[in-house]
Nucleic acid binder design. Sequence first.
DNA 1: AAATCATTTTTCGTATCGGAAAATTTTCTC
DNA 2: GAGAAAATTTTCCGATACGAAAAATGATTT
Lengths: 224, 224
Amino acid sequence: MICAAAGSAYDCGMSTRIQSISPDSPDTQRADFGRRLHALRRDRGWTLSELSERSGLAVSTISKAERGLMSLTYDRMLQLARGIGVDMSEFFSAEGTSFAKGSFAVAPKGTFQRQETPNYVYEMLFPEIRNKAMVPMMGSLKAHDLVDFEDFVRHPGQEFLLVLEGAVTVFAEGKAPVTLRQGDSLYFDSARGHLYASAGAVDARILVVCTELSTDADGQAVAR
Amino acid sequence: MICAAAGSAYDCGMSTRIQSISPDSPDTQRADFGRRLHALRRDRGWTLSELSERSGLAVSTISKAERGLMSLTYDRMLQLARGIGVDMSEFFSAEGTSFAKGSFAVAPKGTFQRQETPNYVYEMLFPEIRNKAMVPMMGSLKAHDLVDFEDFVRHPGQEFLLVLEGAVTVFAEGKAPVTLRQGDSLYFDSARGHLYASAGAVDARILVVCTELSTDADGQAVAR
DNA sequence: AAATCATTTTTCGTATCGGAAAATTTTCTC
DNA sequence: GAGAAAATTTTCCGATACGAAAAATGATTT
């Protein structure tokens, strides 16, 4: 269902805020780098030796770096970034990579980051922008897939859904199932358990935009 | 699909890595860092000894680093960043993200300008929901319309654009015009002056989602 | 609790970084 | 162009990063 009203109004507002500068001592900063590295490793469930293999660094070096006992050289940091599979800037993203004032990014069709789960295949748009106010995703729903209501998803924020192709049945906690066709859209509180499935005989394509989600180093969506 | 951390029964599991395989040798990368550092210094018209004073590093160290003859440690890189007056991520931001972080001083107008141009026809979705975190709108752009750069729109928040049909040329302040085709998308800071026009011979249909806009009683978009 | 295994931390020798000053190159001045 | 001044590069040696292996800590099983 499309609720439509003609016309639009625009106004111009105020500027956005800018990052705060932390006047930390150099050692504090180094420790901060270590914590970030540690987080990146643990998020993947890797041990020191596993990251050691992937990066080519010695276990001891990573250990010391994570605890801020050592100041890595550029070359070693690069090896780590490659071993982890992230861009170097990830190590410093706390200050820099979040949504920046004046940001402008284009995502050509089909170049998105692909994520697969048993039921869904979706592609995260603009995974490189870390703290977006909105997280847009392109999704494909396979036809004839089983629906398991144990898989209800709940997360903070609000969610917008637009059906681009095919038809989609939306199962929402405490609501009767609704079937949306191409061009139909949906807006709801993501805290309500929800679940999508293709309604037709063919795969469906959808656009989903969420709030209060962030993008992690892999471009995965995580609750903020 | 949506992997929400908080209490989600979902395991988004396998992280598909999109990491670009840069066949650059580590030395090449190091040289890249050097060039970036050199550029930052020259942009400010500073000599090696001037940056040496500001950063506390020896002249020789900076010299070697700029030429890629040496792999700086984290601590020295931090000193340099502070001496130059930039965030650490400046050294790496261009490596991965296709995303130019541009600091912009915007001159905001006090009120919204009503978009009554024949170019734009917007349909506000869900006008009955008053305080949405996102405001999705369906838009139609007539072909062969004139573009008046006086009509640049600026407003607080972030904006997501998806081309549903046809092609759209996006004019953004301080950016070269970009033409998006069906399926292409765009994410940017709405404070940057922007303007859309149909690029093809036919009308274009777009989806726009904004933050920090509200819906008034008439279903009009107003700044929050 | 002891024993076994997995993981992290510490130790220590070597390679590399990093700074002071000399050597070289570049830029300015006449 | 010659000479002086400024800027950059090279040299050399002390300080530190880095890796291999030993020691310590933590987890699991019997």
